[in-house]
């Protein structure tokens, strides 16, 4: 594998991460955060961790980001724009994140990370077979659960009609 695609993905991830914290409009930040999460998911793919990549996309880029954007839509975005981006805690934040980076670099240099032995596991395939064969019944039950939550939400959120 050439290094170039990997570098592109990492670069994109870092760039969008910086954009996430430096945008004035929180909605833009949210969209850049999605880009960051997708780049992380892609780098998981490069590491042959396909399950993690899928979870990253479904949970973070999917569910959690939808939640964040919903909350943003309910808040006054225009008001938030007037709040200064940087404040007095910047030095403290720099100190903490600098420490974290130092720790990561140190660990990497020590080569203390546990290497995964053995042939690559096609975890997605195994997971899919489990879900649709052995655990087919709970999987279908989950669909009922989703339907019920949907109906319950509509009941709670619906306005009372003229009676």
């Amino acid at each position: 594998m050439t290094l170039l695609p990997l570098l592109v993905v990492f670069g994109l991830g870092t760039l969008s991460a910086i954009l996430t914290i430096s945008r004035r409009n929180p909605l833009h930040s949210a969209f850049y955060l999605i880009l960051t999460l997708l780049s992380v998911a892609t780098s998981f793919l490069f590491l042959k961790a396909d399950f993690l990549a899928m979870v990253q996309v479904i949970l973070y880029a999917g569910a959690i980001m939808v939640l964040i954007i919903f909350v943003l839509l309910l808040t006054a975005v225009e008001e938030v724009k007037k709040i200064p981006l940087f404040h007095r805690q910047t030095p403290l934040a720099l100190l903490i994140s600098g420490g974290l980076i130092a720790e990561i670099v140190y660990t990497l240099l020590q080569r203390r990370i546990l290497a995964v032995e053995g042939p690559p596991v096609h975890s997605m395939e195994a997971l899919g077979k489990m879900l649709f064969k052995e655990y087919g019944f709970p999987f279908e039950l989950a669909s009922i659960l989703l339907l019920v939550s949907l109906v319950a939400t509509v009941v709670i959120a619906k306005k009372e009609g003229p009676s």
Partner: peptide
């Protein structure tokens, strides 16, 4: 667990 959750969510509403 899934049965319990189906029951519980309907009950809340």
């Amino acid at each position: 667990y899934l049965g319990l959750e189906v029951m519980a969510i309907s009950s809340y509403a």
